[in-house]
Design a protein around this nucleic acid. Structure first.
Lengths: 193, 193
DNA sequence: CCTACCGATCGGTAGG
DNA sequence: CCTACCGATCGGTAGG
C-alpha cells in the first residue's frame, strides 16, 4: 500500500500512476487500473489531470531537468576529469535514488510520448549524454583515461547507472551513498590508465 | 524495409513482430499494426500463430536458452575467475549482437508475459545471474578481485551488457568483437585488485 | 489469406 | 467525485 497521507489527491494520482507505469509499463496500465488503485472511478481522474499522457510527460521532463541541473555546477569546476566524472556519477545516482519509480519510468517509458514531446525529450537526453562525453574526452586528452572509444565508454557508464532503479532497493540495508561510491570507483577504475 | 526473402511467412511474422515489440513495446503493438507491416489482414496472422503472447514467449525463452547454453562450457574450465568472466561477457555480448531486436525484447518486454510464464522466465534469469555471481565470488575468494558487494558488481555488469541492444548498431563501422573485448576489459579492470 | 464479426476494454466527455 | 455513456480499438474466432 502506498503512503498517501499529507498528499493532495492530484499528488496521489501522480504517485500511483508512476508506480504502476514502472511495474506494468505505460501502455499496459489503463486509467481504470489507476482509478481502482485509488478507490475511485476512472472518469473521476479527469478532474485532477487532463490526460494519461500528461502524467507521463511530467514524470519524464521533471526527471530530465533534475539530471541536467545536477550536472551544471560540476562542469564548471576546475578539477581532473576523473573527479568530475565521480561527482557526475554521484549526482546522477542521487537523482535516481531520490525517486526510483519516476526514474524507471523515465528510462523505460519515454518512448510512449507522442511524437513532438518524444522529440523534445530525446534532445534533452542527447544534451545530457554529450556533457558526460565531454568529461570523458577531457580525461583522455589530459592523459588521465585510456584512449577508449567514447561512445562505448559513455554508453557503458549510462547502462550501469540506468538499471539501478530496477535492482536497487531502498528497503534493503544497502546504503545509497556507499552504492554510488562503489559504482563510481568501479567505473572510473575501468577508464583510468 | 525488412529483408523477407527466403523466409517462410511464419518467420516473417516473428521477425516483424520482434522489431515492432522492440520499437514500440509489446503492449503498444497491436496485431493490426503487425498485420499491416506484412501487408495482410489481422485475422490472417492467426493461421501462422496461436496468439500474440506466443510470439513474446518464443522470443524471451529462446534468448534465455542461448544465454545459459553459452555459459555452461565456460563454467567448467579450469581458469582464473577473471578469464571466466571475460569469456562469459564475450559469450553474452555475442548472443546480443547476433539478434539485437530479440535481445531488446528479452530485456524490456518479458514482464508482459502472463503470470505463469513470467514465473518460469524469472527463474531462468535468476539462474543465469547466479552463475555470474559464482564467478565473481570465485574471483574474490582467490584474491583476484577486490572485496566488492557481489550484488552491486553483478548488477553493474548486467546493466552494462544489457543496454547494448539500445545503443549498439550493426550498421556503424564499430566491430562487435572489438566492442565486446573493450567492454570486458573495462568491466574486469573495475573489479581487479 | 479474406470478410465479417464477437465481446471486452480503451481514453475520455457530459452533466450533475 | 459519480453515473451514464461515446467512438475507437483491442485480441481473437467462424467460416470460407
Amino acid at each position: 500500500m502506498l503512503m498517501n497521507e499529507n498528499l493532495t489527491r492530484k499528488e496521489q494520482v501522480y504517485l500511483h500512476a508512476t508506480v504502476m507505469f514502472k511495474d506494468r509499463g505505460y501502455a499496459a496500465t489503463s486509467m481504470r487500473d489507476l482509478a481502482n488503485s485509488l478507490g475511485i472511478e476512472a472518469a473521476s481522474l479527469y478532474s485532477h489531470i487532463k490526460s494519461k499522457e500528461e502524467i507521463l510527460r511530467k514524470i519524464c521532463f521533471d526527471i530530465a531537468a533534475e539530471f541536467i541541473s545536477g550536472l551544471i555546477d560540476i562542469e564548471q569546476e576546475d578539477i581532473p576529469a576523473s573527479e568530475k566524472l565521480r561527482k557526475g556519477i554521484i549526482s546522477h545516482t542521487k537523482v535516481i535514488a531520490r525517486d526510483l519509480a519516476s526514474s524507471a519510468v523515465f528510462f523505460n517509458e519515454y518512448r510512449c510520448l507522442s511524437p513532438s514531446y518524444l522529440h523534445d525529450f530525446l534532445l534533452l537526453r542527447i544534451n545530457y549524454i554529450n556533457r558526460f562525453k565531454k568529461i570523458i574526452k577531457q580525461g583522455i586528452a589530459e592523459g588521465e583515461f585510456v584512449n577508449i572509444d567514447i561512445k562505448l565508454a559513455v554508453m557503458t557508464l549510462f547502462s550501469s547507472l540506468n538499471w539501478m532503479p530496477s535492482w536497487y532497493n531502498h528497503t534493503e540495508n544497502i546504503n545509497q551513498e556507499k552504492v554510488s561510491e562503489e559504482l563510481a570507483n568501479m567505473l572510473i577504475k575501468g577508464l583510468k590508465k
